[in-house]
C-alpha cells in the first residue's frame, strides 16, 4: 500500500496570535511556525502502517511557499520516504489545495491519503473531504482508529455522542482526530538522514491545476473582549451571585 500524507505549515500551537494594526490579516512576522498538530498525527499513523508491514512507501506533500519544506523534512525525519513540495503563494482556499493533492495522488497511484482533520490556523476542517470528493473515493474523517482487513480499511470515527466504524474501499482518504495516536519525536540520526531523502519541487502548472480564487479576505479583527469578572471568596458568595446577579440558576 502506498500512502500520501499531506502536511501544513502553521503557527506554532503555543504561539500567540496577533491581528495586524490595519486589520488586513493576522501578523505572522517573526512568529514560530511548525507542522499542524493534526498533520503530525497523520504522519505518525502512516509510519505505524509502514512499520507494521502494511504500507510500502510514504510520500509526504506540502503546499505553500518555500519554508514549508521544513515541515516536509520534519515528516521525512519521522519516517516518510520522500517529499513533494508544490510551490505556490495561493493556499487560502482549501479547494485549490485539494485539487493539487488530488493530482499528486493520481500521479503517484496512491492507495491511502492521510491528512489532519483541521489546520489550527484557518480552522476549516474541509480539505480531506474535498480531496475525497475530487478523487471520487471513500472518506473516513475524524479517525480515532484505523486498521486494514481483507483489502478494506476499517476506520473508527469520532461522531457526536460516540463512535462510528466504517469499512472503506481503497483508495480512501482518512483525516485524523486527536486520539488516533501519540506522535513520536524525531531522533537526531533520523533528522540527519532526512536531509538526504528526495524532495521534489513542483508548480501548480506542472500538475496541470489552475488555481482559482474562491474567497476574498475583507478584514481580520480581534474578537470581542469579555468584561473583567470578579473573584468570589466562598461557595455561598458564588451561589448568591449566580442566583441574584447573573440570574442563571
Amino acid at each position: 500500500m502506498k500512502i500520501l500524507v499531506a502536511v501544513k505549515r502553521v503557527i506554532d500551537y503555543n504561539a500567540k496570535v496577533r491581528v495586524k494594526p490595519d486589520n488586513s490579516d493576522v501578523d505572522l512576522a517573526n512568529i514560530k511556525m511548525a507542522m499542524n498538530p493534526f498533520c503530525e498525527i497523520a504522519v505518525e499513523e502512516a509510519v505505524r502502517l509502514k512499520e507494521s508491514g502494511i504500507a510500502t512507501e510514504i510520500v509526504v506533500a506540502s503546499i505553500g511557499e518555500k519554508p514549508c519544506q521544513e515541515q516536509i523534512r520534519s515528516a521525512l525525519a519521522l519516517g516518510a520516504d520522500r517529499g513533494i513540495h508544490v510551490e505556490t503563494e495561493n493556499t487560502s482556499d482549501s479547494l485549490n489545495v485539494a485539487k493539487l493533492l488530488a493530482k499528486i495522488a493520481e500521479r503517484e497511484q496512491i492507495d491511502l491519503i492521510i491528512l489532519g482533520k483541521q489546520a489550527i490556523d484557518s480552522d476549516n476542517n474541509q480539505t480531506g473531504q474535498m480531496l475525497a470528493a475530487l478523487l471520487n473515493c471513500s472518506q473516513g474523517t475524524f479517525a480515532s482508529k484505523v486498521c486494514v482487513e481483507n483489502e478494506k480499511l476499517l476506520v473508527t470515527r469520532e461522531i457526536d455522542g460516540g463512535l462510528q466504524t466504517l469499512s472503506l474501499t481503497l483508495p480512501a482518504v482518512v483525516t485524523t482526530d486527536l486520539r488516533l495516536n501519540e506522535p513520536r519525536y524525531a531522533a537526531l540520526p533520523n533528522i540527519m538522514k532526512a536531509k538526504r531523502k528526495p524532495l521534489q519541487v513542483l508548480t501548480p502548472d506542472e500538475l496541470g491545476v489552475t488555481l482559482k480564487q474562491h474567497t476574498q479576505l475583507t478584514s481580520v479583527a480581534e474578537p470581542a473582549k469579555r468584561e473583567q469578572g470578579v473573584m468570589v471568596n466562598s461557595v455561598d458568595e458564588l451561589i448568591e451571585k449566580l442566583k441574584f446577579e447573573a440570574k442563571v440558576i
Binding site: 500567540k16 496570535v17 490556523d121 480552522d123 479576505l217 478584514s219 481580520v220 479583527a221
Partner: peptide, 8 residues
C-alpha cells in the same frame, strides 16, 4: 480563525 483569536 486561529482558535477564535481572530475573526475573519
Amino acid at each position: 480563525i486561529y482558535a477564535g483569536n481572530a475573526i475573519a
